[in-house]
Write a protein that binds this DNA or RNA. Structure first.
Lengths: 202, 202
DNA sequence: GTCTATAGCCGGATAGAC
DNA sequence: GTCTATCCGGCTATAGAC
């Protein structure tokens, strides 16, 4: 096996994801990353041209993995409502267990330049987003698929994003941060609205 | 009138809000702010002890204004569904017209420390959040008010937060960024879920 | 591939004159 | 209140030895 030293590159990326997610691009120095990896800053420049390049490699790595998992769920053969339920659950699970992914995404929404946004939209999220839009259109043919798809993402992701402040807001319970509870709430809301009438649909 | 020079302080805060919102704490230097105001960096230290203090003054100013306007809407005398509709519209309007407020809030969710989160929760958002929870409980007595309140906020705010990437995603239309369209979509979703049946409940 | 050493810049903050 | 001048620390990035 000749793969003993070339995975330094992967180690750098993995730790960069963690650090950039935690503190943001400007608050992570090349020194910080080098320290985490256990090498000197100068050595890092052997693997990456500069800090920007390393950052780009990090977000691509982090986002691509999630996007492909979610796109898979949407290719499943099943009735639309069941597929939606699965998608919501999987999205909640992925976003919940990978805080770095979530935070990098939040940071990109804030500070990503237009070129990067376009890249992410077209090369990373497009496929999944289209499939999600088609799924909701199957459930309600008259809806606006773009708006509805965003609504689904918002319900799941915003719950997780607001966790740091929610713990101080009235009515907070431990369950509010659990995957099952969030996914169930979102699915129910999407099916029935606030009116908690009818079917508990599995 | 003796208020000619002491509003330098207010000018500093106003421009800081704009700059911190645009670029984030770490990416705005004291020099940048001083330049914007039209004074030298050293003069800024006459008005504020340090950069942190100035930042805190900025977010308090930005957040308090919005919170009080929204709390007002919730004190209105009207049927629950009408109040909810008004709240959603007002929230969408405020968040839409004040990008700085929105971005500062996003940044705080990412990088606010626990002490600041607690302060914001208790001193700035609590009142409004409680009232919103009580309102949804009026509409559905069996719901979880905390979760439902967050869901409402998420539907409105996430639409706006994702604007930079949505423009590159399939199905995007100009209307998707207009206050009326967003508020209407959110209200309908909350009332009926994805199923676009019954009442258009103006 | 990783090191030491260092260049060169930009940041927050202070001292003291006006 | 605002200025000029300056300190000093941290930052990205490079040069060149091993």
């Amino acid at each position: 096996m000749h793969v003993i030293k070339e995975n330094t590159r992967q180690t750098i990326i993995d730790l960069s994801i963690k650090l950039f997610a935690r503190s943001g691009y400007a608050n992570v120095s090349v020194r910080d990353i080098a320290n985490a990896v256990g090498i000197k800053p100068a050595s890092l420049y052997y693997h990456f041209d500069n800090k920007q390049t390393l950052y780009l490699a990090s977000i691509k790595e982090s986002f691509s993995l999630k996007a492909s998992v979610l796109a898979e769920v949407l290719q499943m053969q099943a009735p639309a409502e069941i597929k939606l339920k699965h998608y919501i659950y999987k999205l909640t699970e992925l976003a919940s267990e990978d805080e770095s992914f979530r935070r990098l995404l939040q940071r990109e929404m804030l500070d990503g330049d237009e070129k990067r946004m376009q890249y992410l939209a077209e090369k990373v999220f497009q496929e999944q987003f289209n499939a999600l839009g088609m799924l909701v259109a199957e459930i309600d043919p008259d809806c606006d698929p773009h708006m509805s798809a965003i609504s689904i993402l918002s319900l799941v992701l915003y719950h997780l994003e607001t966790a740091p402040i929610r713990v101080f807001l009235k009515g907070h319970k431990k369950e509010h941060d659990q995957v099952d509870y969030i996914a169930r709430h979102v699915f129910k809301l999407l099916m029935n609205g606030l009116l908690q009438t009818s079917k508990d649909a599995l």
